[in-house]
């Protein structure tokens, strides 16, 4: 029988550790086992962030000020959105070096359409995102059909799209978005304090409700149920983290809308990767393309989808312009540490 549910022949170091640690239940035991097995999850990233905060906080007293952290959050939204796309390609076991150029290209396409050709802002954004998808499809086709290494494809993309960007910009080398235009306003919108707190409460409640519903469904399906304390602790931790962020940001100008958009993108992408077949197949292709192929998955289609999604997200990162120049290496650093 399945030893998850019964205190059956629990052998080996993992089991001993799990018993020593007195976990709250079989699922917690499994989690402890995974931790013990070297799967540290997000711990190293959290530790690195703590070190960074400590070091720079002592070097410069203003580093941890509300204003600076708000600016960091603003920059993170653009870089992070681009990094989300890189994450997808990394999950496929490939690399996309071109996201910075693609992001810049999209920003230029959008701005040129909007400013020089008078295309309405919303339509310009959509057209720019469409261009990004086309770029990604091209990368994917070159990678799959021509069997070029992704490194080569996207390195040439890095250089080539930069060239197209400069060509589109023309002699002046810059196009300025009007400060009162809808696109510029997007990056200068801040949530009122009450709305931020409401959002924190709503998110924590939603997380708790989801955990409770999952528990109920698992119990009904005769599956092992995680302990109630676990669900409460997770929702509580989420609420605490969100509350801390809101408290800091409210100390300055408030929660920027771009950060909310970025956060939503993160959650949506996470749900799509874990909750849809396409998302699972992305993991499968990255784990073993041959196994995925033998399971009847169209590896080519998944790879093209991945590159298209990466470019799309790079384009989406461009439409929150305050970060300035295309942050390609920053995005990649952010992605690899995810």
């Amino acid at each position: 029988m399945i030893t998850d549910t019964a205190p059956g022949p629990a052998r080996g170091r993992l089991a001993r550790f799990a018993r020593l640690a007195r976990p709250a239940g079989p699922l917690a035991a499994a989690a402890a086992g995974r931790l013990r097995g070297g799967d540290l999850g997000a711990l190293p990233v959290v530790a690195a962030l703590a070190v960074i905060a400590a070091v720079f906080g002592t070097l410069n007293g203003r580093f941890l000020s509300a204003e600076n952290l708000t600016n960091l959050a603003l920059q993170m939204a653009a870089t992070g959105t681009i990094a989300l796309g890189v994450v997808i390609v990394l999950l496929l076991g490939e690399i996309d070096l071109s996201v910075g150029s693609v992001s810049g290209l999209c920003a230029v396409v959008m701005t040129v359409l909007n400013v020089r050709h008078g295309v309405p802002a919303g339509l310009a954004v959509l057209l720019a995102l469409g261009a990004a998808v086309l770029v990604g499809l091209l990368h994917g086709l070159m990678f799959t059909m021509l069997a070029m290494p992704s490194f080569v494809v996207t390195l040439s993309g890095l250089i080539g799209w930069q060239g197209l960007l400069l060509y589109l910009l023309g002699h002046e080398g810059t196009v300025n978005l009007p400060f009162d235009g809808p696109i510029a306003r997007l990056s200068d919108t801040w949530l009122p304090a009450w709305l931020s707190w409401l959002a924190v409460a709503a998110l924590a409640a939603a997380a708790l409700a989801a955990a409770l519903v999952t528990r109920r469904l698992r119990a009904r399906a005769d599956l092992p149920v995680p302990p109630l304390g676990w669900a409460l602790a997770r929702a509580g931790a989420l609420a605490a983290v969100l509350a801390a962020v809101v408290a800091v940001l409210n100390g300055d100008r408030g929660v920027p809308l771009t950060l909310v958009i970025f956060g939503s993108l993160v959650v949506l992408l996470d749900l799509a990767l874990r909750g849809t077949a396409a998302g699972r197949w992305i993991y499968a292709v990255g784990g073993s393309a041959e196994a995925a192929r033998r399971a009847g998955i169209s590896v080519t289609r998944i790879r093209i989808l991945g590159f298209a999604a990466a470019s799309l997200l790079a384009g989406a990162g461009a439409s929150s312009p305050p970060a300035g120049s295309p942050p390609s290496t920053r995005a990649r650093a952010a992605a690899t540490s995810c």
Binding site: A277, Y283, A284, G286, G287, S288, E290, A291, G296, I297
Partner: peptide, 19 residues
């Protein structure tokens, strides 16, 4: 031909997931 990064359930149903 298993995907090492996926769990047992995901491997069992790979390519024919219940949806």
């Amino acid at each position: 031909a298993l995907c090492e990064n996926l769990d047992v359930v995901a491997n069992l149903f790979l390519g024919s997931e219940k949806r």
